[in-house]
Amino acid sequence: MTTPYDWSSDVFSEIKKRNIETVCTVPDGGLTQLLNMVKDDTDTRLVTLSTEEESMGIVTGHWLGGKRSMVAMQSSGVGNCINALGYPAVMRAPCLMIVTMRGQWGEFNPWQVQMGRSTETVLEAIGVKCFPVDKPEEVGETFAGAAGLAFNGGFSAAVLISQRIIGAKGFGKE
């Protein structure tokens, strides 16, 4: 069995390089390694949310105070954020998101499919530039590109990490 490509380390290295000091999250299984890296790093703050749209306020407030932050969430969480995504946009506050996709590649749970199928469409509709990626070795550079757009241009940008990279949760079934 080959070791899966470690895209989480690539993303974490970009987080450090770009002085992103806070990561807001409602966790997802696909984000476990990345969130553990953030949690274990004393210079990076992990903010656990009750619901994902809170992060649009937190990243805006953080930017108002001169610091960089970002959001990490599952595709279902995107649905919770739609109205809130207008908030950083109207102030041109950078809003960088990393989204692990559910409901697309071998999904076991049909309850995840509707939002997974809609994620990119609704994000683009509210004005978020999406960067879908389905090769693990390309996640790091894709994240870097999205971060550049967000922080240098004052835009909202989302890296959508394919379920093909994460793998489907099998619930013990084939």
Binding site: M56, I58, K67, Y87
Partner: peptide
């Protein structure tokens, strides 16, 4: 706009500006 985001925004700012 952004109903519900007053406290999250204030929190994000408070974390970024601990001396304010």
């Amino acid at each position: 706009g952004g109903m519900g985001l007053s406290v999250p925004t204030a929190l994000g700012l408070a974390l970024a500006q601990p001396n304010k």
